[in-house]
Simulated scan of single mutants.
Amino acid sequence: MYGGNANAYNAYKNNSVNYASKDQLLLMLVDGALKFAKIARQAMLDKNIIKAHENIVKTEDIYYELMATLDVSKGGDWAKKLQSIYQFIIDRLVQANLKKDVKIMDEVIPLIEDIKNTWDEAYKISKGVR
């Protein structure tokens, strides 16, 4: 019985990504970045270096993906500023990972939260939901 439920969940999860709009995928990415950053921070506190590293790398990968999808030619100055914020977050995550420094995570997690909240709000506005 459990195996069937796990398969059904995996099928649902895969389909939710396969059928998501670009906007929804972006929201999934920023949600994931925040989740992984928080897991990494807790892993540092728990002295679980491997788990901290893996989750920081996942967070970095999401920000690399977000940078790759930014259309600077259409987004102009706004996109360039966003790109520099993404790069700053990646740079700080690299430092946090190298030093296993919770203080750097405490600095960067609020930025990740702000970006997530901004994209959530932009999505709601674009859909006429408030």
Rank of each mutant, 00 (worst) to 15 (best):
residue 59 T to P: 01
residue 83 Q to C: 07
residue 89 I to L: 07
residue 88 F to S: 11
residue 90 I to P: 00
residue 52 A to G: 03
residue 82 L to R: 12
residue 57 V to L: 08
residue 80 K to E: 11
residue 62 I to F: 03
residue 57 V to K: 06
residue 56 I to D: 01
residue 86 Y to D: 05
residue 55 N to S: 03
residue 86 Y to L: 04
residue 92 R to T: 11
residue 77 D to L: 07
residue 78 W to P: 03
residue 92 R to D: 09
residue 76 G to M: 13
residue 82 L to E: 07
residue 50 I to M: 06
residue 81 K to N: 15
residue 56 I to L: 07
residue 60 E to V: 14
residue 61 D to C: 03
residue 86 Y to T: 01
residue 50 I to T: 15
residue 56 I to S: 02
residue 68 A to V: 04
residue 63 Y to T: 11
residue 56 I to T: 05
residue 81 K to W: 03
residue 55 N to K: 04
residue 52 A to E: 00
residue 86 Y to W: 06
residue 59 T to A: 04
residue 59 T to Y: 02
residue 78 W to R: 12
residue 82 L to H: 09
residue 63 Y to I: 11
residue 59 T to V: 05
residue 64 Y to H: 13
residue 51 K to N: 01
residue 64 Y to A: 07
residue 69 T to A: 03
residue 81 K to E: 11
residue 75 G to E: 13
residue 81 K to P: 01
residue 53 H to R: 08
residue 77 D to Q: 14
residue 71 D to W: 08
residue 93 L to G: 04
residue 58 K to P: 00
residue 70 L to Y: 06
residue 88 F to I: 02
residue 60 E to D: 12
residue 84 S to I: 10
residue 56 I to W: 00
residue 56 I to Q: 03
residue 72 V to T: 15
residue 91 D to S: 12
residue 93 L to F: 07
residue 90 I to K: 08
residue 73 S to P: 06
residue 67 M to A: 05
residue 85 I to L: 15
residue 92 R to F: 03
residue 73 S to D: 15
residue 69 T to R: 11
residue 66 L to V: 05
residue 84 S to V: 09
residue 84 S to T: 15
residue 52 A to P: 02
residue 86 Y to G: 01
residue 61 D to P: 03
residue 67 M to Q: 15
residue 89 I to K: 05
residue 62 I to P: 00
residue 60 E to S: 09
residue 58 K to L: 01
residue 78 W to H: 10
residue 62 I to N: 00
residue 63 Y to R: 10
residue 66 L to H: 08
residue 72 V to R: 13
residue 79 A to W: 00
residue 69 T to C: 02
residue 77 D to T: 11
residue 51 K to R: 02
residue 61 D to Q: 10
residue 62 I to T: 05
residue 82 L to M: 14
residue 70 L to H: 06
residue 70 L to R: 11
residue 68 A to R: 10
residue 54 E to A: 14
residue 76 G to T: 14
residue 56 I to N: 00
residue 56 I to V: 13
residue 68 A to P: 02
residue 86 Y to N: 02
residue 84 S to E: 14
residue 70 L to M: 06
residue 62 I to E: 01
residue 56 I to F: 06
residue 89 I to G: 03
residue 60 E to W: 06
residue 58 K to Q: 04
residue 80 K to C: 05
residue 67 M to I: 15
residue 82 L to I: 15
residue 58 K to R: 14
residue 80 K to F: 01
residue 51 K to T: 01
residue 77 D to Y: 04
residue 86 Y to S: 01
residue 53 H to K: 07
residue 87 Q to L: 12
residue 81 K to F: 03
residue 93 L to M: 11
residue 80 K to W: 04
residue 52 A to M: 01
residue 81 K to V: 07
residue 50 I to L: 06
residue 89 I to R: 07
residue 86 Y to V: 01
residue 56 I to G: 00
residue 54 E to M: 13
residue 53 H to P: 05
residue 78 W to F: 05
residue 92 R to Q: 15
residue 64 Y to P: 04
residue 94 V to G: 08
residue 76 G to K: 13
residue 59 T to L: 01
residue 90 I to H: 02
residue 54 E to C: 08
